[in-house]
């Protein structure tokens, strides 16, 4: 029981990191494609600056849950995927530093380049690691992660542009989101096909035990695609969020009871002692009680445009 809950907590954390942290990396991707488009870059900057650090922390929290709740599995993944993890770490550092410095000293070629390159590098290598964990093509999963982040970011930025009363930008990001949605959908299918070749059981369970979630993901993705393509932006953001979250959960349900399918490590084999799992659940409960309202506050202040660069008035 406790072990399943901790596994669930791990999936919740992964969902939050993928859907919020992933979108911040996706925003960096669009920054790269907006080299001659200062309005887009300004929107990206304003939307990401106050929140990226908070979104990033879900990664650290997830890592702690993983190595504490499942020490043996964690040690296996960190050892076998070490090169990709070092590269992802490099990307995390470069992205964070470039973005933080850019906020102070303005845009500079070196910082912008670093920010954009690392915004692609990091999700690519994180996808690579997940590809390694499930035992399927790491590069394909890397591309999937980059595409999914770009898709989420574009969808979120439509809303950010609308809040700021910038209809032209909203339309631009809606077009971008449509493209990104189509690419993400196509890459997902490719990943599923590649997975079915290396691990037929896991692929089968994505269309078996996890079928409702897989269907939900496909429906949400298609709905976002259709709505944005026909110029209706309402609900696009929550639908995109639910769609990507459903993919994370479909993966989590499909691979259960395995935790690291490529090494045939199960959730229960890798689990820490019962007392640690209970301790983690208490920590998780504290997190839910304290962190949820904090994030709600942060995001609602951000949505009401109460968080702006303070140096503007100095």
């Amino acid at each position: 029981m406790a072990v399943t809950l901790v596994y669930g907590a791990l999936l919740v954390t992964a969902t939050l990191y993928v859907t919020f942290g992933g979108a911040d990396f996706g925003a960096g991707f669009w920054n790269l494609l907006s080299a001659r488009d200062p309005a887009s870059r300004k929107l990206i900057d304003e939307s990401v600056t106050p929140v990226w650090e908070s979104n990033h922390v879900w990664l650290v929290f997830g890592l702690v849950l993983f190595f504490t709740g499942f020490p043996a599995a964690s040690a296996h993944v960190w050892t076998s995927e070490a090169p990709a993890l070092w590269l992802a770490l490099l990307g995390i550092v470069a992205r964070g530093v470039a973005f933080a410095f850019q906020a102070v000293v303005g845009e500079r070629a070196l910082l912008s380049g670093l920010f954009a390159a690392s915004s692609i590098l990091t999700p690519f290598f994180m996808g690579w690691v997940i590809g390694g964990v499930v035992g399927a093509s790491p590069p394909a999963f890397g591309v999937l992660f980059v595409a999914a982040g770009a898709y989420l970011a574009a969808t979120y930025l439509v809303r950010e542009a609308e809040i700021r009363d910038l209809p032209a930008l909203a339309a631009r990001f809606a077009r971008r989101a449509v493209w990104a949605a189509a690419v993400t959908g196509a890459v997902s299918v490719v990943c599923l096909v590649l997975l079915s070749r290396t691990d037929a059981r896991l692929a089968g369970r994505l269309l078996g035990a996890a079928l409702p979630l897989t269907v939900l993901a496909a429906l949400c993705g298609s709905a976002v695609l259709v709505r944005l393509a026909t110029g209706r932006t309402r609900l696009a953001r929550p639908l995109a969020w639910v769609g990507v979250a459903a993919v994370v959960w479909a993966w989590g349900v499909a691979q259960h009871p395995l935790l690291v399918p490529s090494a045939a490590i199960t959730v229960s084999e890798a689990a820490a002692p019962q007392s640690t799992l209970v301790g983690l659940l208490v920590v998780g409960a504290v997190a839910v009680v304290l962190v949820t309202p904090s994030f709600v506050l942060l995001f609602s202040l951000q949505a009401r445009r109460r968080l702006v660069d303070p140096s503007a008035t100095d």
Binding site: F61, T68, P71, A272, P273, T276, L280, V283, V286, A287
Partner: peptide, 14 residues
């Protein structure tokens, strides 16, 4: 020792 020292780390994460 991940199962031991992870608990303070978890709180730190919060």
């Amino acid at each position: 020792y991940g199962a031991v020292l992870g608990l303070p780390f978890g709180l730190e994460g919060v």
